[in-house]
Design a protein around this nucleic acid. Structure first.
Length: 253
RNA sequence: AGGUCCUAGCGAU
């Protein structure tokens, strides 16, 4: 069983989802019983296929094998259903969970965040705290993702979105304050997201401030700040940053 | 044996 699972996982990691599912069929034909690890590997395959129908089939197999209340599997189901763009199924899986830890709260927050549903993300964020679960770095990242996605939509609208951008900006400032309090502000991914979202909200000043304060930067940090200026038609500053990036030995990608 | 994570682009849809 272990070797079957490794094989499935390997194909899933190489984004060969269909192969992975086929191997699972062979495994069952050989009369081998799947373990929770098998399903985690299968769900990873579903996640890259983004195929709702197949995900539901795997879900059915999970139930038949008696792993319906496995926390890890359910968390992954929430995530995969969201990647298949079925928030309904993601939410159903989430609601069925008897016990919820921070990881699964993060998964549902991210599920809504991925399509810019800021209000719902914040709603789950509030609920998790009511239930005594302490947010972690990924919780904040997930909420920032919701803000980023929505801000990205609104900046592309020529005029209409200005007041929305303003309210997103206010939310981001609150999250930013929390991140400072929790000492997550020096995290690279967090920093990258703040640069991006501040830029998309039109606040290059905040974006730049975060960028300059970062203890460590990656090419993503540079991209985010450069695209921020470019978006606001500040081509010259974007170019200056681009040359500075090269001077500091970071390769463009 | 690894349940949730960043920008842009490219594919897929």
């Amino acid at each position: 069983e272990h070797s079957w699972t490794s094989l499935i996982l390997e194909h899933a990691n190489r984004r060969q989802g269909r192969q992975a599912l086929k191997i699972y069929e062979d495994m069952r034909k050989d009369g081998v019983e799947p373990s929770p690890h098998t399903f985690l590997a299968l769900l990873k395959a579903c996640s890259c296929l983004q195929d709702l129908k197949r995900t539901k089939q795997v879900h059915a197999e999970v139930v038949m094998s008696g792993f319906e209340s496995d926390v890890d599997i359910n968390t992954m189901l929430v995530d995969v259903y969201a990647k298949c763009r079925s928030l309904v199924d993601a939410t159903l899986a989430f609601d069925k969970m008897p016990h919820r830890d921070v990881v699964c709260w993060n998964a549902i927050i991210l599920a809504y965040a991925q399509t810019g549903k800021v209000e719902q993300s914040l709603h789950f964020y509030a609920r998790m705290q009511q239930e005594g679960v302490v947010p972690d770095r990924l919780t904040y990242i997930s909420i920032l993702k919701a803000c980023t996605y929505l801000a990205g939509l609104k900046t592309r609208e020529e005029n209409g979105g200005l007041h929305v951008l303003q309210s997103i900006l206010e939310i981001v400032r609150v999250i930013h304050a929390n991140l400072r309090k929790r000492k997550f502000q020096s995290d690279v991914v967090v920093g990258n997201m703040l640069i991006d979202v501040y830029g998309k909200c039109g606040s290059l000043k905040d974006a730049r401030c975060v960028f300059e304060a970062m203890p460590r930067r990656t090419v993503v940090s540079w991209n985010a700040v450069i695209f921020g200026y470019a978006r606001m038609k500040e081509g010259e500053e974007a170019l200056r940053l681009y040359t500075r990036m090269q001077r500091e030995g970071v390769q463009p990608d």
